[in-house]
Computed example of a mutant assay.
Amino acid sequence: MLKLFNYDLQNFASPSASKALLSKITVKKLAEYETILSPGQHQQNLYFIKEGVVRCYYQSLEMQWTNWFAAEGNPIFSTESFFSGNPSLEYIETCTPVILYQITREDYRTLMAEFPELYEPAFHLIQSYLHISEKRMYGSQMQTAYKRYEDFIETHRHIANRVKMQHIASYLGITPTHLSRIRREFAFKAYKNVAKINVGT
């Protein structure tokens, strides 16, 4: 079953809404490190990931700052471009080979107007997006780099080994060298915890 917004379509859409939505969706396949959106472009399609991992980042000269990662079931969009109709401020690119479901911005808006039930998953998506953004802002100001890495592993465990370490470092706001030290510390603590459990049993 088609999964959108991390929901199975049949769980939130009526048969008529499902049929209408499926009639507007096409499939797009991209290779690793292909650009989906660049600054200055207008996002004309909303994408949902069937397979693979995607990231969003900003770039200034030679520096990159990863803003988010997305994997199976998640949508891909530039908030500024897709919802506001303004040129994108960010890059969106594939981290792995991906298969995407896509629907045009115009078709998406028409379907939302025709089938109000489609607003529920979209509303939960926006809630989730705001929660993650607030948590990241808090973490960047109030948490240590080690704690930010712990939170990343907790929330992105399914993609942590599928993306480049330099991209994770840019997401956490640290250097790759600093990330390597944190990963060694994290692995050592995990090893000690396992050892304690084994001794206890």
Rank of each mutant, 00 (worst) to 15 (best):
L2D: 00
L4I: 04
L4Q: 02
N6Y: 06
D8G: 08
N11L: 08
N11G: 00
N11E: 05
P15G: 05
P15I: 08
A17W: 03
T26R: 08
T35S: 12
I36R: 06
L37T: 04
K50I: 06
K50E: 12
C56A: 15
C56G: 14
C56D: 02
Y58Q: 08
Q64F: 10
G73N: 04
E80A: 11
F82V: 08
F83T: 03
Y91E: 09
E93W: 07
P97Q: 10
L100K: 01
Y101R: 07
E106H: 14
D107N: 11
L111S: 00
L111G: 00
E117V: 12
E117T: 13
L118W: 01
Y119P: 01
P121V: 01
F123D: 01
Y129W: 14
Y129M: 14
H131A: 05
H131Q: 08
M137V: 09
Y138N: 07
Q143V: 03
Y146E: 10
Y146V: 08
F152P: 00
T155V: 10
I159P: 01
R162L: 15
Q166G: 12
H167W: 15
A169R: 06
L172T: 02
L179I: 11
F188D: 03
A190P: 00
A195Y: 09
K196Y: 07
V199P: 01
G200M: 13
